[in-house]
């Protein structure tokens, strides 16, 4: 199983960049040219093709951070720390895209860039939690196991907090458009749905590629740190 996973992972350089490139181009062309103009919202609605996939993949990235954190605590393998951290960085990046595109869309549609609606608020809280996670992890070196474990615990609590955050802010207030795609009878025309699906593929492959790149970078930092420690140790000896 592990051998198979490692072989699949070894293909990342030959598989992910072309898929990401093609899907991204298709998404841009689809969103700007192919998809029909929305009658009520106008051109600004085209942001949806980036906003919605980024929002969903952001959750996937945060859940992967939690999964990698559980694996770190379970297997005691510092490589999982690199994966967790990389995934959190990409998740925060996607969360930033979601917040910014949402604000740009909100100004002409709602008349304000920001409103304290339930979904906006919970996304902002998630952004803060995972920025805090990255901060907590960055206070110590790449090989500091205690800091890695502490950050992993924080990431797990962060993900477990998501349902409670959703519940609290939903009771607090709601203004965000209701889901139009994830329901038994999607209320989106087929052309728009196709572009949105391409958007999902594009953002998912971009996120996967970025996470694998960042994981490699974190692993390199861990190895440099290990080499430096060994060098210092020898010098003292």
């Amino acid at each position: 199983m592990t051998a198979l996973l490692e072989r699949v992972y070894a293909w990342r350089w030959s598989v992910l960049p072309p898929i990401t490139g093609v899907a991204m181009m298709a998404m841009i062309v689809g969103a700007l040219v192919a998809a029909p103009r929305e009658i009520i919202e106008g051109e600004v609605q085209r942001l949806m093709y980036l906003h919605v996939p980024a929002a969903i993949i952001m959750y996937v990235a945060f859940f992967f951070t939690a999964f990698a954190s559980v694996m770190l605590l379970w297997k005691r393998d510092i490589r999982w720390d690199a994966a967790a951290r990389a995934s959190a960085i990409v998740g925060v990046f996607l969360c930033g895209i979601v917040l910014v595109t949402g604000a740009i869309w909100g100004k002409p549609i709602w008349g304000v860039y920001w409103s304290w609606d339930a979904r906006l608020t919970s996304t902002l809280i998630l952004f803060l939690i995972y920025c805090a996670y990255l901060l907590a992890r960055s206070v110590a070196g790449p090989l500091d196991e205690q800091a890695a474990r502490y950050a992993a615990i924080f990431a797990i609590i962060g993900v477990a907090d998501i349902p409670i955050i959703q519940m609290s802010v939903r009771w607090w207030r709601t203004l965000h458009p209701q889901p139009i795609v994830f329901r038994p009878d999607p209320a989106l025309p087929n052309e728009m749905l196709v572009v949105l699906l391409i958007g999902f593929v594009a953002v998912l492959s971009l996120a996967t590629w970025l996470i694998s790149l960042q994981t490699d970078t974190e692993r390199a930092a861990q190895r440099v740190s290990a080499l430096r420690a060994e060098f210092d140790h020898r010098e003292i000896a």
Partner: peptide, 14 residues
């Protein structure tokens, strides 16, 4: 505080 307060927002609202 930077770590704990975001996690505590649901509690604060409630």
């Amino acid at each position: 505080p930077v770590l704990s307060l975001p996690l505590l927002i649901p509690l604060l609202i409630g």
